[in-house]
Write a protein that binds this DNA or RNA. Structure first.
Lengths: 211, 211
DNA sequence: GTCTATACGAAGATAGAC
DNA sequence: GTCTATCTTCGTATAGAC
């Protein structure tokens, strides 16, 4: 009945939750839906993760681990080739992570991307803090690299543009940048990803904000 | 007990819902919370709006009406001064709308801004369609004006950048562009709004995406 | 016409028996 | 580790008071 055949209950719960949170958001996803999709009992979530929030936390951590690993790998690659990578290279490495993960993890990569895009616009402050903590590791490295490529900008300005990049990428990956009014299905297109790189590169290269 | 003293029940419901949806999102806000905050009975929502979704719809429509009016007014002003407004002028007019509304509507302006920022990352497709329909009116005009200022870009590319602007503004206004890890309160700062204008202007002025 | 009191069934999360 | 039971909260419906 499920696509995830016989992994441990714990893993099947994580997979199902990741997919459902990605599609409907945290609040709108019920534990019953998750457990049914995972072929597990309602109470299994409580046993393995303590609560709905615990499950969510675990899903975020697992997804971010994959993304952070890939991001840092790409950054290291870049630095190996050239000690001060260009802004466009950095942006591309950051943005392309999603696509790379799709290659490595198959279908699930897309789900991860959508899930994380979803997470970053969750209103719940606890969730936002969790996300912030998980982005942390890669964040520091990318901020440093960007600052080196943009020495004329204040750290505040670089940080702002970095957060804009994270946010926009999230919207892109969750399909929110798709056309607003038309029929439904909003999977990000290849072309849009390239457009996003163009746009973000220009945004980073903008002159410093006056005032 | 409420800050909204004696408007009609209908209006108090709209006010309370707007504020609560803005803070917690649609799914996480219960009708009971809304009615208590509005000092009304549970059934009042059903009487006035038919359902939770009906209430939400009404809140979106009211908020968007305010924003669209202001946006179109600013655009008309711009066109009066100069037949082809610059990209920066257009971006600024679009972005500054939130702030203008704050001036005109006091505290509620901030709530509207946060609310609409929230709405645009709601996962529910029905909500997304509703939002798209409401953005429509102003959208056409701005797209035209931007296309005139950027004749070398394809309509597709202009539309993509426009949607990125809408999205980023939403994130900005809902506080999602605030610092990710720190203490909580995330009201957008004046400085960040200026940074946003800089960033978006540069994004629009980027060369066309190759490929 | 507005609004309230109250009830209903479905779905929520968690705790405790197994 | 799992299943059943329980207790809460949800959105909605109804019947009638002002």
């Amino acid at each position: 009945m499920n696509d995830t055949h016989r992994a441990s209950t714990r893993d099947r719960l994580l997979d199902a939750a990741e997919r459902l949170f990605a599609e409907h958001g945290y609040a709108a996803t019920s534990l019953r839906t998750v457990t049914v999709a995972a072929g597990a009992n309602v109470a299994a979530v409580n046993y393995h993760f303590g609560s709905k929030e615990g499950l969510f936390r675990a899903v975020v951590e697992r997804a971010m681990a994959a993304v952070n690993t890939e991001r840092l790998r790409l950054l290291a690659e870049l630095r190996a080739a050239r000690s001060v990578p260009s802004v466009e290279e950095l942006v591309r490495a950051f943005v392309v992570t999603g696509a790379r993960i799709v290659e490595h993890s198959g279908e699930r990569g897309m789900t991860i991307a959508r899930f994380l895009g979803q997470v970053m616009s969750e209103p719940d402050p606890a969730i936002r803090r969790l996300f912030g903590a998980q982005v942390g590791p890669a964040e520091g490295q990318y901020l440093d690299a960007l600052q080196s490529a943009l020495p004329h900008l204040s750290p505040k300005e670089v940080a702002f543009r970095y957060r804009a990049m994270v946010g926009l990428l999230g919207l892109h990956q969750s399909g929110s940048l798709g056309d607003l009014h038309p029929g439904r299905p909003v999977t990000p297109t290849e072309g849009d990803t390239e457009r996003l790189v163009t746009l973000l590169t220009a945004a980073f290269l903008a002159p410093r904000t006056p005032g």
